[in-house]
C-alpha cells in the first residue's frame, strides 16, 4: 500500500538527501525510525530546519507536530545552523565540582557567546553536555570531537584559538 502512494521529493536537489533516504529505508519507512532519521539529517546537514522536518513527516507519514515535538524534546537535536567548530563543555558532577562553570565563563568572556549560541562569524558554537563520561579527566570539554582533559579556563580559550590558527596555516 505504502508503495502505491506518491513519493515525497526531498526539499532540495542536494545529493546528500540520499543518506537520509537510506536511513528511512533501513527502517522500512516505519514511524518508529523517526529518531534515527533525524540523527541522519543532523549528521549530514548539521542541524534540522523546517523543510527537512516537513520532508521527514511526509515520508514517514507522521504529523509534523510529532516530528517537531521529538526534535525539540531531545537535547541532541539542533534547530539552528552550527558554527564551523563546536565546543562542548561538560557539566557533569565531577566536572562541575572541579569548576566547569569557569570554563563557560571564560568562553563567554573571550568569544561573547553563551551555551547554545554561535559566534556572529559562524566560527564557533558553544554547547554544554550533561556528562560526556570522561569524569576521571574532569573538567573536560570536547572540542570538534576531541576530548580535552584537566582544562583550565585559559587552556580552553587557547585551544579554541589554536583551531583557527591551524586552519589559517592550512590555507
Amino acid at each position: 500500500m505504502r508503495d502505491l502512494l506518491p513519493k515525497t521529493a526531498p526539499p532540495t536537489s542536494d545529493k546528500r538527501w540520499r543518506i537520509v533516504d537510506t536511513a528511512m529505508r533501513r527502517n522500512g519507512y516505519a514511524p518508529d525510525g523517526l529518531i534515527e532519521t533525524l540523527h541522519s539529517i543532523q549528521e549530514t546537514f548539521g542541524y534540522l530546519d523546517e523543510p527537512s522536518m516537513r520532508y521527514v513527516a511526509s515520508s514517514l507519514r507522521v504529523p509534523l507536530g510529532k516530528v517537531y515535538g521529538v526534535a525539540t524534546f531531545y537535547h541532541h537535536f539542533q534547530l539552528k545552523p552550527q558554527g564551523e567548530h563546536s565546543c562542548v563543555v561538560c557539566l557533569g558532577t565531577a566536572c562541575y565540582i572541579k569548576g566547569s562553570s569557569n570554563l563557560l565563563e571564560a568562553v563567554r568572556k573571550r568569544f561573547g557567546i553563551r551555551s547554545g549560541e554561535t559566534t556572529p562569524n559562524n566560527k564557533l558554537s558553544l554547547l554544554t553536555a550533561r556528562c560526556v563520561g570522561s569524569c576521571s579527566l574532569a573538567p573536560v570539554s570536547v572540542l570538534d570531537g576531541q576530548t580535552l582533559p584537566h582544562l583550565s579556563p585559559d587552556q580552553l580559550v587557547e585551544a579554541i584559538c589554536a583551531l583557527d590558527e591551524t586552519e589559517e596555516a592550512a590555507q
Binding site: L91, T93, A94, R130, C131, G133, C135
Partner: peptide, 8 residues
C-alpha cells in the same frame, strides 16, 4: 542510556 552525570 547511561545518563547519570559522573558515571561511565
Amino acid at each position: 542510556d547511561e545518563g547519570d552525570p559522573g558515571a561511565f
